[in-house]
């Protein structure tokens, strides 16, 4: 009897710990580079430095959202290729992605996100002493970078600024996005495609003012997806890149984004940084997808015109076959444009 008990217990334990050993592996793609955290005003924000650190060129990536994660981009092909030439710094902003802690609600401001950016820049400069440092702001990251760089003192630490389908002007951008959705919904109706559905959605848009809230993300976001306003070619959508073995729990960044933007507790709908962007004098590049429905292409010229950078040092490029994410939709061209800019100003 005792032998039977011991055998069953031993078998159970062996199975248990074998499973544990197998399960403790970290996905291979996260093994390289340096990983640490920045703590600032209640938020503990993960920072991953990877790529060609011996180049002396560091590119800090400001992700979108608010509330998303750098994870989608840190392992993307475009940034892996660029990482062969430069070092990239991927960090998750407060209350976003894999960030931890319980920061006060009063820290959910653009100014605080910009202060976090300032601390990241200082930290990277302290740790790596880069020869050149660039900022890249994608979508919501475009607002953060624009605000941060509007302070001339901050510009002294950065060689160049790249805004990609950025949120520097949400005050005009959100209503533009609303209209983009309605226009494209009308096209679907004219084509006889899901007529009733799109009629209902147009009625919904007409029933409420453009806003960033739960509805924006859930219903408007869903419509943008269906209308190919995020990816012009949905087949190129990388989907949820975070898997079970990823550091970022795969639903964390979605829930963080939902709660950060819920009930207007992070009031960003009136952000319009154009007047502040006149202070930006450093080399700058604006990249935009022609078919962007999230932040329509009119905002690309708006960003370019707002920048105070001398004309000789600022540029604008429109990706003709992309919506909101040209790094996924026209990867080779995206890599080329990024390299051209960095090489010119490193």
């Amino acid at each position: 009897m005792k032998n039977k008990i011991n055998k069953n217990v031993i078998i159970t334990l062996i199975l248990l710990f074998s499973f544990i050993q197998c399960a403790s592996l970290l996905d291979d793609k996260y093994q390289e580079g340096d990983f640490f955290y920045l703590e600032n005003k209640g938020a503990v924000m993960p920072v991953w430095v990877k790529g060609n650190q011996s180049s002396g060129v560091y590119v800090i990536f400001l992700h979108g959202g608010p509330g998303n994660s750098s994870d989608t981009y840190s392992t993307a092909h475009a940034y892996n290729e660029l990482g062969k030439k430069y070092a990239f710094v991927f960090w998750d902003q407060r209350a976003s992605g894999a960030s931890q802690g319980n920061p006060d609600l009063n820290t959910f401001t653009l100014a605080q996100f910009a202060d976090d950016t300032k601390k990241i820049v200082n930290l990277i400069r302290h740790m790596y002493k880069p020869n050149a440092l660039f900022l890249v702001g994608k979508s919501w990251g475009g607002a953060i970078g624009s605000y941060y760089l509007s302070d001339p003192q901050n510009q002294q630490l950065v060689n160049g600024w790249i805004e990609i389908d950025g949120a520097h002007n949400l005050k005009d951008g959100i209503p533009l996005s609303w209209e983009w959705a309605k226009d494209n919904a009308r096209k679907r109706i004219a084509a006889g495609d899901e007529v009733e559905f799109w009629q209902e959605e147009i009625a919904w848009y007409n029933s409420k003012p453009a806003n960033i809230d739960t509805d924006y993300f859930m219903r408007h976001g869903s419509n943008l997806n269906k209308l190919n306003g995020i990816y012009k070619n949905p087949a190129l959508d990388p989907g949820d890149t975070v898997g079970l073995f990823a550091p970022v729990p795969f639903f964390f960044y979605q829930l963080n984004a939902y709660y950060l933007n819920n009930d207007n507790q992070f009031d960003i709908k009136n952000i319009k940084l154009n007047s502040l962007m006149a202070n930006i004098q450093i080399p700058s590049m604006v990249l935009w997808g022609r078919h962007d429905g999230t932040l329509p292409v009119e905002l690309a010229q708006d960003a370019y015109d707002a920048l105070g950078t001398p004309v000789a040092d600022k540029s604008l490029y429109i990706f003709e076959n992309s919506a909101h994410c040209p790094s996924f939709e026209e990867t080779s061209l995206f890599i080329l444009k990024m390299q051209e800019f960095i090489e010119l100003y490193r």
Partner: peptide
Amino acid sequence: TWSHGGTIYTVTDAGVVEEK
């Protein structure tokens, strides 16, 4: 819970980096 996988740093307003 404890953050895992790396050192935690703070940066003061004066730019001084410290381990936490």
